[in-house]
Nucleic acid binder design. Structure first.
Lengths: 232, 232
DNA sequence: GGCGAAGCAAGAGCACTGCTCTCGAATTTG
DNA sequence: CAAATTCGAGAGCAGTGCTCTTGCTTCGCC
């Protein structure tokens, strides 16, 4: 019987999930800095050392939360993208942008965890990368789809690229589609950077006293980026 | 004699500086998370409680470091801007961009401190704002100067703005110059956001495996932003 | 079915942390 | 000179991440 796991395995999976849930709850309250293994254990009615059976260290727990955060955001983004599929390429781009901003606003600490300063000495393990790339891939996919549909405005001048950049975009194209021209992917990278730059600046207070609340600026810039991408 | 301060005052100022220097040293090694008051005190040959005569709390020390970081970056940016003054508006913009990136690369932890996730529950006190605005002001000043010189390319279409945005740019214009049109300031905000979005993404690893090293993409995008600003 | 192995929670303990409070000594001020 | 302020040191509190040992429970294999 390999269909249903053993009782111990199920208990383990459940407890692992409960730990993450409680950790996420604490994260939302006090931020990554305030996440305490002992407090999580206390809240779950267990002793702190028992927690180490499930996560080797505090950083390990954070890594798990990071992957979850990337995935949660990507889930919503991809869903919004699908929902806007029939409304056109520009609508898909707008849907993605608004979803990213809404999710970040709703989960500021989780957003800070993944798009803010990297934690202490630690560097993202390979496992996080797959989840992290889903949003940029969604953006680039719009460009690919629009390009394949022949719907993109003819590229204007000024898109000459140095060889290094051409090679790098080729590497990106491997994930998106071999026929997407590099200069379109560069534009996609600009739009992607702008999107998260805006959300980060807004959330971290750089727009305070000027562009805050940033709704108008955000929508305006999203539209500007749609034009930059040539989306109809 | 109020020309020279008392010995105690001078000692206090010196020690305050030494504390910040040592803290900055630790910051560069272990990041904000790893900054320990006790370790700073230990390194300075004093006891931890004595440190509280100079900084009321760890967050207070961090705030001081934040202000210093903003100021250090702004100093370099303004110097680079001045140095490029005779080379034209586009050269000034490029100089600022490269300086920001170079400083961030040279002081990643200090950059993360000011442009990364805000620390725990803490929010930037008023005192940080003045230092924080110097870089965006430098950027907007290029636009103002170019505009006043009549050197900006005629604005293209699509710059209609909702009333909220017009009001917000008016607030920005109060710091820059009353005659700078709002739609130019919006473009400036886009470029400013793009600049720091790129640096943050590069430094925090979002470009890993694709656009990293980001030199080519950076220069390409800086040039693109110069065109967006209409800089000659 | 029983038994050895593996997985598990608990507790004690270590080396830290930020921060407070008190107590003498040094320095500045009136 | 005396009073007031400022300062460093030390002890102490409550908390942290993490390790190690000790028993108990569950699992898989013979």
């Amino acid at each position: 019987m390999n269909a249903s796991r053993t009782a111990r395995e199920r208990a383990r999976a459940e407890l692992t999930q409960e730990i993450k849930d409680e950790a996420r709850r604490q994260l939302a309250v006090s931020g990554a800095q305030g996440l305490s293994l002992r407090a999580v254990a206390r809240e779950l009615g267990m002793v702190s050392s028992a927690l180490y059976r499930y996560f080797a260290s505090r950083d390990d727990l954070l890594t798990a939360l990071i992957i979850d955060a990337y995935s949660a955001l990507a889930d919503e983004v991809e869903a919004a993208d699908r929902a806007a599929a029939t409304a056109g390429f520009r609508a898909r781009w707008q849907a993605i942008c608004r979803t990213v901003r809404a999710w970040a606003t709703a989960h500021p600490h989780e957003y800070a965890l993944v798009y803010g300063s990297p934690v202490p000495g630690y560097q993202a393990p390979e496992t996080t990368i797959a989840s992290a790339t889903r949003v940029p891939i969604a953006i680039m996919s719009i460009i690919r789809d629009a390009h394949e549909a022949g719907a993109l405005a003819a590229p204007r001048d000024e898109d000459a690229m140095p060889p290094v950049l051409t090679e790098q975009t080729a590497r990106i194209a491997a994930f998106i589609g071999p026929d997407v021209p590099g200069h379109l992917l560069v534009r996609g990278a600009v739009a992607w950077t702008q999107l998260f730059g805006m959300v980060t600046f807004e959330l971290f207070g750089q727009y305070a006293n000027t562009l805050d609340p940033a709704d108008a600026f955000f929508d305006h810039t999203v539209a500007r980026m749609a034009r930059l991408l040539g989306l109809p």
